[in-house]
Amino acid sequence: MGRYLNFVFILLVVAGAAAVYDMKLAATKSASHVSELQREIDAEHEAIRLLRAEWSTLNQPDRLQHLVDRYNEYLQLQPLEVKQIVTLDELPPRPVTLEPIGGKEPMSGYAGATAAVIR
């Protein structure tokens, strides 16, 4: 009896050792995965910084003005004029569009015309 019990214990010890080994291996693997991810995050952060710096370089007013000057034949941009700035109150009232009496059908039209007809 005692001998069988001993065998059981030995088996348990072996199984326990195997389980612990497995867990340790898994932990090491996770740790290296974590550090790998951390490294990737750092690299991404670095890339973001670099891209933000580049974005800012490309958006420098100095550079934009230079580009506008060079390609203005095509862009046709002009400096803002003071009289172009108005507040909402200064806008003229919205033009009123009147619906024709008697539904959506146009009063008259041209044969074969698909576009909306002036009402």
């Binding site: 710096a53 800012s56 958006n59």
Partner: peptide, 9 residues
């Protein structure tokens, strides 16, 4: 919020 100075590695 425009960047005036930043660190690059």
């Amino acid at each position: 919020g425009e960047i005036l100075a930043t660190d690059i590695k």
